[in-house]
């Protein structure tokens, strides 16, 4: 048996293995990365297969996650955007779906003249995330009415709403409903972009009805209210969010904001976005 002197082993230690694995993955990510010392043509040919598998698996995952975005921008543009995304943001999570995280931002960079592409990608990602969100039971409007019937001013001010997990809202400049419907079947052609543009931004509100992710276009102020509530704001703070940055709003503005908060709350209850009170 050969005695190994300390620190001079030819065998890879655990730290060496970690280093080799990093180099292996680097060679998968980058065609130009040097192959490990001692590798010959056989290993280079094998590495080419792993490199191809990596790219095709991630490209397929993005195509599956962003079916409508792909249809909208066209096959070649989507392929280039996907490649750019996986090169600039190689995945780190254990689920391959995470490879699609942030693709809306990649689209915002690459399709700067067409912001609807990023909005569509955001919507597809959010819908996909909602599909596997925890199951919850929506609070019925009648149950809310019963609970709120005896609220005093202070209880209303301090009321916190529990929103459905992973429900989301964002301001969009294009009619996502129109885009979504037009891209509903693989046989459809890309819709006319000018027809989808909105005169002013609206909110796209995304949630799940039972097991089915869904969305609706609503007034722009839903987004500010939603983000406030999702961030833990109480009802008074939600009204404050609707007032914006004005440090000394006129009474009629406060009254309007309070009315809008009531209308928004009513809509969320009707749609089933609220799953509890004062969590």
């Amino acid at each position: 048996m050969t005695k190994r002197s300390e620190g001079t082993s030819a065998k890879p230690s655990r730290a060496d293995l970690a280093q080799r694995q990093q180099a292996f993955l680097q060679a998968i990510h980058d065609d130009r990365a040097p192959l490990p010392p001692g590798w010959g043509n056989r290993q280079a040919a094998g590495m080419a297969v792993y490199r191809g598998n990596y790219r095709s698996a991630l490209m397929a995952a993005l195509a599956d996650l962003y079916e409508r975005t792909a249809l909208y921008v066209g096959e070649e543009a989507f392929r280039r955007a996907s490649m750019h995304h996986i090169i600039t943001q190689p995945p780190s999570g254990w689920t391959i779906d995470e490879a699609g995280a942030g693709f809306d931002k990649t689209c915002a960079q690459l399709f700067g003249d067409n912001p609807e592409v990023s909005e569509l990608a955001w919507l597809e990602w959010t819908m996909r995330e909602l599909a596997s969100a925890p199951d919850t039971l929506a609070m019925a409007p009648a149950d809310f009415a019963e609970a709120g019937a005896h609220f005093g001013d202070e209880e209303w001010a301090n009321l916190r709403l529990a929103l459905q997990p992973r429900a989301a809202a964002r301001l969009v400049g294009h009619d996502c409903e129109k885009l979504w419907r037009a891209l509903d079947t693989a046989s459809s052609n890309a819709p006319d972009r000018s027809h989808a543009r909105l005169a002013s931004p609206q909110s796209c509100l995304v949630w799940r009805e039972g097991e089915r992710p869904t969305f609706v276009m609503v007034e722009a102020d839903h987004t500010a209210a939603f983000h406030a509530v999702a961030g833990g704001a109480n009802y008074a703070e939600m009204i404050g969010a609707l007032l914006g940055d004005d440090p000394d709003p006129a009474p009629q503005l406060v009254e309007h904001a309070a009315m809008r908060a009531g209308a928004i709350l009513g809509r969320w209850l009707q749609e089933g976005l609220i799953v509890g009170l004062n969590p």
């Binding site: 065998k11 890879p12 230690s13 060496d16 190689p90």
Partner: peptide, 17 residues
């Protein structure tokens, strides 16, 4: 690795370590 995931089943060196 600690930083990235290949989402592919990559080969092991067949060593004792």
């Amino acid at each position: 690795t600690s930083a990235h995931n290949s989402h592919d089943l990559l080969p092991m060196p067949l060593t004792r370590d």
